[in-house]
């Protein structure tokens, strides 16, 4: 009898206990993500690269457009990486400090990647979720528009845009933003179609929740897993696209720079013994892409444990 009383008291205590905090699916995913070593390493690398972009200018000894005339034209002999003269990563052929230029290239490349992915996430998710949820003719029209836009060779359009409207970062953002959301909207539409017939959506409809709120409160939060994974994989794609455009010489303009442009410059002078001009930007480029891919994989494993 005594034990029973204790049990009852315990139960009573539990009943009056303060509100229990729930373990959300996001918290579960965070935990799984934290256990994934490759993904965590990727995340740390990304944070470091981000810090490099944000605070690198505080360390740089020269502004990125400062030309050191004593080195200009003699980069192979005088422009090596050295702590003594403050050119940590050496200089480029015109005697500009490569460290400052890599910092700036990192800023631009990351910004292109993140802005491109952000446009894809916002536009693509809302567009795809609306098409999938409304269905029927609206869905048909919306998705045929996507098909038509996809059928246009985008690199060609992007190059044309840059040639016609002048080469600027703004135009690059517009061009990349126009293209990036197409795939996202298809993926999101597919997911929405499978969510749409779930009973919790039906329950919300039955009680009279408006379509707009259903999309925002029931569909989108359940899509975010897929969207997050795809977005992290989209960032490196955007960076690659921008690098390719800049490599062709159509992207950002001097004195601004980006990874693609730095790599292009480094590649063009590699036979003159200035390999550091290629190595430093390439190193940042490669580790960032790897890190994004590892983080994307980790997110996928963390967010749908069933798919592993």
């Amino acid at each position: 009898m005594r034990i029973e009383h204790e049990k009852l008291d315990g139960l009573a205590d539990r009943m009056v206990e303060a509100e229990v905090k729930g373990r959300s699916p996001w918290a579960d995913a965070r935990k799984r993500f934290a256990h994934n070593k490759a993904a965590m390493a990727g995340l740390i690398v990304l944070i470091l690269v981000g810090c490099f972009a944000a605070f690198g200018n505080l360390i740089a000894q020269y502004p990125n457009d400062f030309t050191d005339f004593t080195i200009m034209g003699r980069a192979a002999e005088l422009g090596q990486p050295s702590f003594a003269n403050g050119h940590y990563f050496g200089t480029d052929d015109s005697g500009r400090d490569l460290f400052a230029r890599v910092v700036q290239g990192t800023q631009i490349s990351l910004m292109v990647g993140v802005v491109g992915a952000a446009i894809a996430v916002i536009v693509g998710t809302l567009y795809g979720a609306t098409a999938g949820y409304v269905g029927g003719r609206v869905d048909n029209i919306m998705m045929r528009i996507v098909d038509i836009l996809m059928a246009i060779p985008y690199m060609f359009v992007l190059i044309l845009l840059l040639v016609i409207f002048g080469r600027s970062i703004g135009m690059l953002f517009v061009g990349i933003g126009l293209l990036s959301w197409l795939d996202m909207s298809r993926i999101v539409r597919g997911q929405t179609l499978s969510l749409k017939n779930k009973e919790f959506i039906e329950a919300a409809q039955a009680t009279g929740v408006s379509s707009f709120r259903i999309i925002l409160r029931h569909i989108v939060p359940n899509l975010l897993g897929v969207v997050a994974v795809y977005a992290t994989l989209l960032v490196p794609l955007m960076i690659l696209t921008e690098s390719f455009i800049s490599f062709l010489g159509l992207g950002v303009q001097n004195p601004n720079t980006s990874w693609g442009k730095l790599i292009a410059e480094g590649a063009s002078t590699m036979q003159y013994g200035t390999l550091w001009q290629l190595a430093f930007p390439l190193f940042f480029f490669v580790i960032t892409l790897f890190a994004f891919f590892f983080v994307g994989d980790g997110l996928r494993d963390a967010l749908d444990p069933k798919d592993r």
Binding site: S24, P25, W26, K198, E199, F200, E202, A203, A204, R217, H218, P221, N222
Partner: peptide, 12 residues
């Protein structure tokens, strides 16, 4: 609804 778990939004 019939399926108790499917009728509840897992993110809420």
């Amino acid at each position: 609804f019939q399926d108790p778990l499917a009728a509840l939004n897992p993110r809420m």
